[in-house]
Amino acid sequence: MTTILVVNSGSSSFKYQLIDVEEEHTLASGLVERIGEASGHSSHRAGDESFARELPIPDHTAGFRVMLDAFAEHGPSLETNPPVAVGHRVVHGGKRFFEPTLITPLVEINIEDLSELAPLHNPGALQGIRAAGEAFAHVPHVAIFDTAFHQTLAPDAYTYAIDPALAEKYRIRRYGFHGTSHKYVSEQAAHFLGRPLGELNQIVLHLGNGASVCAISGGRSVDTSMGMTPLEGLVMGTRSGDIDPAVLFHLHRRTGATTDDLDELLNKHSGMLGMTGHLDMRDVHSAAEAGDEAAQLALDVYSHRLKHYIGAYLAELGRVDVISFTAGVGENAAFVRAGALSGLEALGIRLDTERNEARSREARRISTDDSPVAVLVVPTDEELEIARQTLAVVRAA
């Protein structure tokens, strides 16, 4: 058995999975949260059983001790199934990291330096890396960057139309995110269709609380909706997505809102939550069906933005073979998929209503058999993709 421990660390929590990469099977998973608060929480799942604890967890190092205790008490035994490496999700790799990278002190310095581009994410990832380095000192640690998959974007796709010297000095460009998911889903779509990845033009829609769409040609990202930060692009759970930048100047002048106020507004109090008061797409849909006009408008805006990007990427790619929906909303909300694709029949996109409404946890086709563009629902598995890439780095070292 070849196992990889996958860690996704934030500033006050981290998730983990122990994965048998050969069988592509999760042996255990867990969450350590409320780190640094008066009372922390940990949960651990092994097989069909779940276990939870409430206790003080002062820092990430203590959090990893709690995780090790959970493995020792509830299994599987890390002595019997020791991880050959630890894979770490890191949100922002800037333009420095374009592939999975063995973590060294220099890499840690670079991740810390890039924290100015992802102040809510990279510092937490670095805390997890350092704590995991203490807990698993004798195995390699590998960083998998959300931005890496999009490093194949051409300059005309990643460049913003501002002063080049200013952009270079402050590292302003499109980076894109959800790259691990977009890579995994595009490869799974090719496998599902039984076609070589290199011959396919694809559009992948990762629709969760955070949401992005990616145009992929021959397995390479050629454009994506998120930009320098995860704020740009689609309407999301709490984020506005695309908005005229002058709106911020207008709000500042009219209300006196500070930059922090505006950051908070667009990232945490906009999107579906801001328009409807509901964060969960199921609640928005239920409200719309009950006659809530604001909820219906929010769904229409959400669908309009999806359709806008699908159309743009159809034009950019020139030919699209497959469109895939993934993540929580993309995998489960048939009404979102229908809204995004309605009216696109003339472009070769024909949705099968019965297939779209059917529920399954497996990859499946939801387009008609005669649809020139295959439309799929492909469950994402970012942790498995991180484990795969981590093992590849270890074996190549």
Results as ranks from 00 to 15, higher is better:
L279I: 08
H141P: 01
D280Y: 03
G47L: 01
G348W: 02
T259V: 15
G36S: 07
A190H: 01
V322R: 04
V222P: 03
R355E: 05
L273I: 11
A327E: 08
A374V: 03
G233P: 03
C214N: 10
E23R: 09
H178I: 10
N267R: 02
A257H: 12
V284P: 01
R319Q: 14
R173V: 04
S367A: 07
A167K: 05
L117C: 12
R395I: 03
V247R: 15
A287P: 04
I109P: 00
A143C: 11
A52H: 13
V336T: 12
G274C: 00
E232K: 09
G87L: 07
F98I: 08
S367H: 08
L391W: 06
S212P: 10
V393L: 06
H92C: 10
E187W: 15
L251Y: 07
A143L: 13
R45S: 09
G93H: 00
E49S: 13
I19L: 11
V139S: 00
A52Q: 15
N81C: 11
G36C: 05
G40C: 04
V373A: 08
K307G: 10
E22P: 00
D223F: 08
G93T: 08
M67P: 11
Y158V: 01
A165D: 12
D352R: 03
V86K: 09
R239L: 14
H41V: 12
H206W: 10
L5K: 06
R355G: 04
P230W: 05
Y175Q: 04
L55I: 14
P83V: 10
V235I: 15
I111E: 09
V32K: 01
L314P: 01
L117F: 13
E362R: 11
N356Y: 12
D263A: 12
P245S: 08
A125S: 09
D292A: 10
E383T: 03
V222C: 01
T147D: 07
S371F: 14
I144L: 12
I203V: 12
E24F: 03
L120R: 07
V247W: 15
Y309S: 10
S303Y: 15
A161K: 03
L197N: 06
I162N: 01
A333D: 14
L391H: 12
G36T: 03
Q389A: 09
N267T: 08
F145S: 03
G75P: 07
T276N: 03
L248Y: 14
E33N: 13
H182I: 01
S360P: 01
I162C: 01
G94S: 09
V66L: 06
A46P: 04
V247D: 13
